Simulated scan of single mutants.
Amino acid sequence: MRYGFLNAVADFKATYTWKSWLFGWLGRMLAQVVFFTGLGGVLGQPGGVRFLALGNALMTCVVDTMAVVATTSGERRAGTLSLLVASPADPFWVFAGRSLHWPVSGTATALVALLGLGPLFGVTWHPSQIPPVVLLTALTALGTYCVGLFLAAVVVSVPRLRNVVSNCAYLAMMAFCGVQVPVGFWPSGLEALARAVPLTHTLHALRAVADGRPAADVLHPALLALLAGASWLGAAALALHWLVAVPARRAGTLDLSR
């Protein structure tokens, strides 16, 4: 996993310069936050601007982490997937470390949005609130990264769907996990699915921090997010093993679409 992360750092440096990340990627994400939060001002709902500012600022890290779906499929195009699968070692930890630059980048993006743009929309932070904000942002990035790893394991056999799946995943989270509307707005079935995603719980905890609520109101959803992320990580490990490694080793091929 350590060497996978070193490869991830090299990939990130090859993808972005500090200028392209700062003025390209970060600028795009901040514009997205401003756009959706601005819609809240047009609607005129009490507390709507604050609700949307927090939700869309934290959502920026999810957009980053869902890129793991595409970059994991990239191992197949690069010709390295066959070597990973042929190895007697478990390839999961290589994949888990191989794209860790996305949650790191996502955490940085969301923190800039929360701490930089938040005050423009009435979300101010006391210095004592900043540590839990940082921790919850990192937990969101890592938890949704685990969701992305599961989707990546499913999609690696059909790489043409990688961008479709990653985009649909983060758009579904944006719609159903409390970013734009409260989770309770949706029918009970969708609400139950939303609560299986770490973002739903970390966003609830973040709003508790912003409102100055007791520590228990923050800790409980944070623990639920941690549990959800661990569950997705386990599901990703099983999916990579049973959908990629086992079939490929048995068939002696990576043509898993047969």
Rank of each mutant, 00 (worst) to 15 (best):
L149E: 11
A8N: 01
A236E: 04
A96Q: 05
T200L: 02
G116S: 02
L161A: 11
K19N: 13
Q45K: 14
W242Y: 15
K19A: 14
A113W: 06
V197I: 15
L256T: 09
Q180N: 15
S128H: 14
A216M: 05
V112D: 12
G106E: 08
H220Y: 14
D217M: 10
P187D: 11
L243S: 09
D11Q: 15
G24Y: 08
V63Y: 04
V123G: 00
G97P: 10
R28N: 15
V68A: 04
T200E: 03
A228P: 07
P187Q: 06
V134C: 06
A208W: 00
P187T: 00
S87M: 09
M173Q: 13
S128T: 12
H204A: 14
L203N: 09
P221T: 06
A86P: 10
G184S: 13
G44K: 02
V155M: 02
F23H: 13
A86C: 01
G27F: 01
V164P: 11
A248G: 04
G148M: 04
A239T: 06
V69I: 00
L111H: 04
A228M: 00
T144M: 12
D90F: 06
G40I: 09
L238M: 12
F185K: 14
G229N: 09
F5W: 14
G97H: 12
G41Q: 08
H201V: 05
L117V: 13
L30R: 13
A108Q: 11
F95L: 06
L39K: 05
R162N: 02
W93M: 07
T253L: 07
L149A: 06
P221L: 01
L193C: 08
F150Y: 12
V179E: 05
D255C: 01
M174A: 10
V42S: 01
G47H: 12
W232V: 01
G184H: 13
L206W: 09
A192G: 07
L161I: 03
L114G: 02
L233E: 14
S257Q: 15
D211S: 13
L206V: 13
L84A: 09
S87W: 03
N7E: 14
S73K: 00
G143E: 03
G143R: 03
A192H: 12
S99F: 09
R98I: 10
S157D: 13
V246Y: 10
R162F: 03
V165M: 05
V112L: 03
V134N: 07
L139R: 09
V42T: 03
V112P: 06
A236T: 08
T15R: 15
T65Q: 01
V179I: 12
L243Y: 10
G116Y: 01
L149K: 08
V123M: 00
L43K: 15
N7W: 12
L120V: 11
L142V: 14
V33W: 05
W102L: 10
A222P: 08
A222C: 03
P127H: 14
F23K: 13
G40P: 03
P214T: 07
L206N: 11
S73G: 14
L233M: 15
P119F: 08
R250V: 07
A169F: 11
W125P: 04
D211W: 08
G106K: 02
W25C: 02
A8L: 07
Q32V: 08
A8I: 06
R160F: 00
V94F: 15
A228L: 09
A14G: 04
G74V: 07
L233V: 11
S231Y: 11
